[in-house]
Design a protein around this nucleic acid. Structure first.
Lengths: 224, 224
DNA sequence: AAAAAATGATAGTAATACTATTATTTAAAT
DNA sequence: ATTTAAATAATAGTATTACTATCATTTTTT
C-alpha cells in the first residue's frame, strides 16, 4: 500500500527497524512532533509513549535512548537531502548549475513534496536546525563515528566538495567550505529566528530565499 | 593580592557573583575542569560539589542550574576575547591589519597569558568549541536573549563586522560573515579532532595555525 | 562582642532514564 | 484453522538527576 521510497539507514542506530512496523513509524512521527514542539531537552520516552499511547518499554525496544533516536532522525534527514540532490542533479553536467541545485536542494529540503508519509519534512528540518549539533557534540562522538553514524553527512559534504573542485580545482579547502555551507545554513536560519543581531538575513515563515541568495553570493566570491 | 582584571558579566547569569568569594572561584575553576573532561551532559552539581568538597546546596546559591553556569562560562569567554581584541587592536588603524589581529586573537585565545588565575583559558576554549552551541539551542533562547545573555557575543560579532565593512563597504552580509567566522572556527577545530572527513585542516595539540591560514584565505576572497 | 553573611549538614521530592518480568495480543507458518 | 512465534502491554522497580527546604555552624564584617 505504501508508495514512498524507503530510506536506508545504518542499522546500528536502532535495535529494531522503526520502518518495519506501525508502532515504529508512530515513534518516528511523534518524536518529530514532540522534539519540534518542546525541544530535545524536554523530550523523554515517557512523554513519547504517552503521545503514542504505548508503553515506555516498547519504545526502548526500538531505540537504546533518545540520543540515538535523534541521531536516527539526523541520518534520515541527511539521506533525504542526498536523495534530493541526486535526483535533482541527474543529467546536469555544468558544475555551476549543479552547485545552485545542491544549494537549493538543502535550503528548501523541507518544502519538497514529502515522500514518506510518517515524516514531516518541515518539522524534521526545524529539528536539524535547532538540535542537530547535539548529535556530535558528545563525548561519544569518536565511538559513534567509528560505527559510521555520520557517514551520511560525510557523503553529503563529499558531493558538495566535488562540485566545488569542479568549479575551481585550485580551491584549497573544499571540505571545510562544503561543511561550512551546511552548518551556516542551519545557523543563519536559527539566528534569523532567535538572535537576529547575529545575521543580516530574515527568515519569515520558513521563507529562506534570502538565505539561498546569501549562500550563492558567498560561493560565487569564494570560487571566483 | 589578585593582579588580574575582573571580567564584568551580566548579573542575571548568577544568583551570587562567583568572583566575590573563594568558593565561587572554585566553582568556576572546577566546573571548567569537569566539563572539559567529561562533557556537559555528564556534568552535575553533585559531581561538582564532590570535586570541590562542598555541598550541592552551596553551588545552588551561586547558579540556578548547570545551563546558566555554562552560559556564564560562555559569557566569560566572549568578554575575554573582546578584551583581547580591544587591547591588541589599540592604536591599529589599517583595517586589514585589524582583521588579521582579530582573527589571531580568537583563534589563539587559549594560548594567551592567562589573566585570571582561576580560569584555565585553554580548557575554557575547549568547552566553547564542544559545548558552546548548547547555550542557545534551547527553548529558552528568546527569553534569555531578552535578558541580554548573548550581548557579549553580539558585541564580538559587531566588532568584526565593522572591520569587514571598513575593508569592503559593499559587502552585503557583514554580520553573517562575522558570526560565521566564529562558528566556523569552533566547528572546524572540532571536526579536525573528531570528524576529520568534514574538514581539510588538521589540529594537533591545539596547534591552530592551519585554521588561522584558512580563515584568512576565506576572508581575503570574500572581501576582495 | 554582636550582627550578618556564608557555608555545611541533612533530608526530602518529583522526574528521568532506564531494566526486568510476566501476561496478552497480533501476525506468520503450517 | 491451529499452532507457534513475535510484538506489545502491564506492571514494578532502581539509581540518578535536579532540585528545594530547614536548621546548625562557621566565617566575616561592623
Amino acid at each position: 500500500m505504501s508508495i514512498g521510497i524507503r530510506i536506508a539507514l545504518n542499522n546500528g542506530l536502532y535495535l529494531k527497524d522503526p520502518q518495519d512496523s506501525k508502532l515504529g513509524k508512530k515513534i518516528i512521527q511523534h518524536s518529530i512532533n514532540l522534539i519540534d514542539d518542546f525541544g530535545f531537552e524536554c523530550f523523554t520516552f515517557k512523554k513519547l509513549s504517552e503521545s503514542i499511547q504505548c508503553t515506555e518499554a516498547s519504545i526502548y525496544r526500538y531505540f537504546e535512548n533518545k540520543h540515538l533516536l535523534l541521531l536516527y532522525l539526523m541520518n534520515w534527514y541527511w539521506e533525504w537531502v542526498n536523495y534530493l540532490i541526486s535526483i535533482n542533479t541527474m543529467n546536469v553536467n555544468d558544475p555551476q548549475k549543479k552547485l545552485k541545485i545542491i544549494i537549493h536542494s538543502f535550503v528548501f529540503a523541507s518544502n519538497d513534496n514529502p515522500v514518506v508519509e510518517f515524516v514531516n519534512e518541515t518539522k524534521l528540518q526545524n529539528i536539524v536546525i535547532a538540535e542537530g549539533g547535539k548529535t556530535y557534540h558528545t563525548k561519544k562522538v569518536d565511538h559513534e563515528n567509528s560505527k559510521g553514524f555520520f557517514n551520511s553527512y560525510e557523503v553529503l559534504v563529499n558531493s558538495l566538495s566535488q562540485v566545488i573542485l569542479e568549479i575551481n580545482p585550485e580551491f584549497r579547502y573544499p571540505y571545510a567550505l562544503a561543511t561550512n555551507m551546511f552548518e551556516m545554513t542551519n545557523n543563519q536560519i536559527y539566528f534569523a529566528k532567535h538572535l537576529p543581531r547575529l545575521t543580516d538575513i530574515s527568515v519569515e515563515e520558513n521563507e529562506v530565499n534570502e538565505l539561498e541568495e546569501m549562500l550563492n553570493y558567498f560561493l560565487a566570491k569564494l570560487l571566483a
